[in-house]
Structures are given as structure tokens and as C-alpha cells.
């Protein structure tokens, strides 16, 4: 008996014959310790109290959420905490139809960039409470907080349609 011939040339004879291993699993794992930084630590602590805390640039007056220590547009330190409302407008969205490793949500599901009222930077959230094919730009949504709050983004379970009329496209055109 011999193993199948290979491009490497004549194969060595084995009894019983060897059957080549076609694939191997190569697990890759990197363990990090993430430091949130000063501003985002304040943001996460505020979430554990049910508040959304942004940060305003003293020059262009834009409010960043998640907050940044410096304004990427003006290059100056942000100086002022600003509370942002847990409701906003969908600027862009994505419907996920294809399963993937580690997926826990029921398909199809919707994620969207939400421009929170009082913020100038859209934030990515899970959207629940409507059929995936009804998601649209300009839709108004509000946060559903988790039962237990903590210094984590999981403090907001998802956003749901608020029932308000759709926002005027001009109100978010600069943020798409």
C-alpha cells in the first residue's frame, strides 16, 4: 500500500496507507489590557449613572460623543462636558443577514449610526423594535437602557423607534 502520489514525487509506502491531513486549525489570540483614557473613563462612569456625556471643542463648538480629549478638527483640548440626550436620528444603517462565528443576535438585525440630540458625531448602536426592511435614514430612535447599569456600553441595550416623525434631512446632512 502506498500513500497517494504527491507533487513532491514518489510517495513513501505505508501500511496502512496514510491519508493526508488537508487542513489544520491555527488559533490566534492576543490578550490586551485596554485603558479607556481620561475622557472616555468619565463617559463610561456617566453611563453607569444613566447619562451620556460628550465633550465640546471650545473653538468649533462641536460636541464629541464618545468624548475626545482634543478636537481632531481644531487641534485644541476639549474643555467642557456636555450631556447628550439618549435619543437621536439614524444617519446610516446596516442590515446583517449572514451568520458569522460568535454571532448571538437573531438574523436579520440592524445596526445604525445614530446622531444623538446634542452631539455632532454619530455613534453606532444596535436597533431593535422594527422589521429590518423598515429601517431608514432620518428615523428617530431612543435608547433602551439595560436593567443593570455599569461603566460599559452594554448599559444601553439598544435603540428603538421613538415614534416621532422622521427628521428633516437638512438636520443631519452634515453628519452622514
Amino acid at each position: 500500500m502506498s500513500i497517494p502520489p504527491t507533487p513532491a514525487g514518489p510517495a513513501l509506502e505505508f501500511d496502512p496507507p496514510l491519508s493526508p491531513v488537508m487542513r489544520i486549525d491555527c488559533p490566534v489570540r492576543l490578550d490586551y489590557t485596554i485603558a479607556a483614557g481620561r475622557e472616555q473613563s468619565r463617559f463610561l462612569r456617566a453611563m453607569s449613572r444613566g447619562h451620556l456625556l460628550g465633550r465640546r471643542c471650545p473653538e468649533c463648538r462641536k460636541v464629541y460623543l464618545p468624548p475626545r480629549g482634543t478636537c481632531p478638527r481644531c487641534g485644541v483640548m476639549t474643555a467642557e462636558d456636555v450631556e447628550v440626550q439618549p435619543r437621536g436620528t439614524i444617519t446610516t444603517w446596516c442590515v446583517t443577514n449572514v451568520p458569522y462565528e460568535g454571532q448571538v443576535l437573531e438574523l436579520p438585525y440592524v445596526t445604525a449610526s445614530v446622531l444623538l440630540d446634542g452631539a455632532d458625531l454619530p455613534f453606532y448602536f444596535l436597533i431593535q423594535g422594527l422589521p429590518a426592511d423598515q429601517i431608514r435614514m432620518g428615523m428617530r430612535v431612543e435608547a433602551e437602557w439595560a436593567d443593570t447599569l455599569g461603566p460599559t456600553l452594554d448599559s444601553i441595550r439598544c435603540f428603538r423607534p421613538s415614534g416621532e416623525p422622521d427628521a428633516d434631512p437638512a438636520s443631519y446632512a452634515e453628519h452622514v
Partner: peptide, 28 residues
């Protein structure tokens, strides 16, 4: 409140590699 929050984070993925004819027999 002035302390910076830290948390463990694991980036993990399993690649499945084809072996080719030579390593396929080596592993066999």
C-alpha cells in the same frame, strides 16, 4: 472619578489553513 478605567480584552480568531501535499502527509 479621576482614575482611568482599564479592562481586559482578548482578540481571538482561529484560522483554518490548507496544508498542501507535503505538509498534509507530514501531519498524517
Amino acid at each position: 472619578d479621576s482614575e482611568v478605567l482599564k479592562a481586559p480584552y482578548a482578540l481571538q480568531y482561529t484560522y483554518t489553513r490548507s496544508t498542501g501535499p507535503v505538509l498534509g502527509h507530514f501531519f498524517a
